[in-house]
C-alpha cells in the first residue's frame, strides 16, 4: 500500500493557525443560531444580552481579539488516514502548534502544570490530543479551545440500563438547570451515551464539533436531540442565567455500544463561544 507523507512542520503550522482562528472567528452557524433565537426570545433583557454576543463576534473578528479571554484548553482531534505517514512526532508537532498559536495570537495561557500545585505552564501546553485512525490518505485536525466555565459544569454518570432514554434525558436537562448562569448560556450541549465511563465523556466532547442545526444521522437520536433542546429551553435559565427562553442553541448526541450492565452518560457543556475549526492536510 502506498503511503502519503505529511511533514510534522505542516501539522504545527496548521494547529497554530487553527488555535488563532478558532479564538477570533465565531462560526457562522453559531452567529446564525444566536440571531434566530434572539427573534424568539421572550425577555427584553435577554435579547439585549444576545445582541451583545453578536456585537462581540463582530468586534473580535474585526479587531483580531479573542472572542473570550478564556481561550481554553487546547483540545485537538486528529483523524489520521491509514495511508498517512507522519514525518516526525505527531504529538510534539501539535504541541508546538499550540505553543506558537497561543503566543503569537495573544491568547491567554490557562493551563497549570499540576492540578494541585497549580503553576502555570506559560504556553498553554500541553494540549489534549485524541488520535483516531480512519480510512484514506488525509490527516484531519479539529481544534476545539475549551473554556473552563462551561467545562466545570460538565458531568459523567453511569445510569442503570433500566433508566433508559428517559433517564438520560432527565440527567441532561437537570444538569443544564443546575448549571444556571455559570457556563455562559446559551449553551451547546454535547451528550455522550454508551461506551465506558471514559469513552462517553470523550464522545460527548467530540459531538461538540458538529455545526449548530445538524442532526444525528440516526433518526432515533435526532428526535431525542430536539426533545432535549425543547425541554432545556423551557427551563427559563436564559442568557447568563438571568432568565429567558434561550438557554441552549443545540443538543448533540453521540452514542456508542456499551456493556450489558451499563448505561454511561456524559454531558459536556459548551458555552455560546462554541469555538472549533478544522483543517484537512
Amino acid at each position: 500500500m502506498s503511503k502519503r507523507n505529511i511533514p510534522a512542520a505542516e501539522i504545527t503550522a496548521a494547529v497554530k493557525r487553527l488555535a488563532i482562528e478558532s479564538n477570533y472567528f465565531l462560526g457562522e452557524d453559531v452567529i446564525a443560531a444566536i440571531s434566530e433565537f434572539k427573534e424568539l426570545e421572550a425577555s427584553p433583557a435577554a435579547r439585549a444580552l444576545l445582541d451583545q454576543l453578536l456585537d462581540n463576534a463582530g468586534i473580535a473578528a474585526e479587531g483580531q481579539v479573542p472572542l473570550c479571554q478564556d481561550t481554553g484548553f487546547a483540545v485537538v482531534f486528529a483523524d489520521i488516514g491509514a495511508e498517512v505517514c507522519i514525518e516526525g512526532n505527531l504529538q510534539a508537532a501539535i504541541e508546538e502548534g499550540v505553543r506558537q498559536g497561543y503566543q503569537e495570537g495573544y491568547l491567554r495561557k490557562s493551563i497549570v502544570r499540576d492540578p494541585l500545585r497549580r503553576e502555570n505552564t506559560g504556553d498553554n501546553t500541553p494540549p489534549i490530543v485524541w488520535i483516531e485512525v480512519v480510512p484514506g490518505d488525509k490527516l484531519t485536525l479539529y481544534f476545539e479551545p475549551k473554556g473552563g466555565g462551561s467545562e466545570n459544569m460538565s458531568r459523567v454518570t453511569v445510569l442503570k440500563p433500566a433508566d433508559g432514554r428517559g433517564g438520560v434525558i432527565d440527567f441532561v436537562v437537570d444538569r443544564i438547570r443546575q448549571s444556571g448562569g455559570n457556563p455562559c448560556p446559551p449553551v451547546v450541549v454535547g451528550v455522550g451515551i454508551g461506551g465506558t465511563f471514559d469513552k462517553c465523556a470523550q464522545i460527548a466532547k467530540r459531538a461538540l464539533l458538529r455545526d449548530i442545526g445538524t442532526r444525528n444521522p440516526d433518526p432515533y437520536y435526532a428526535e431525542m436531540e430536539l426533545e432535549i433542546l425543547d425541554r432545556v429551553n423551557k427551563l427559563g435559565v436564559g442568557p447568563m442565567g438571568l432568565g429567558g427562553s434561550t438557554t441552549a442553541l443545540d443538543v448533540f448526541i453521540q452514542a456508542y455500544p456499551c456493556h450489558i450492565a451499563s448505561l454511561p452518560c456524559a454531558v459536556n457543556v459548551q458555552c455560546h463561544s462554541a469555538r472549533h475549526k478544522k483543517a484537512v492536510l
Binding site: 444580552l49 454576543l53 462581540n56 468586534i59 473570550c68 448562569g181 455562559c184 447568563m240 438571568l242
Partner: peptide, 11 residues
C-alpha cells in the same frame, strides 16, 4: 453580572 463570553466587547 457582566456578559460572560463578551470579552472582546467588554475590552
Amino acid at each position: 453580572a457582566a456578559t460572560g463570553g463578551a470579552g472582546a466587547l467588554i475590552s
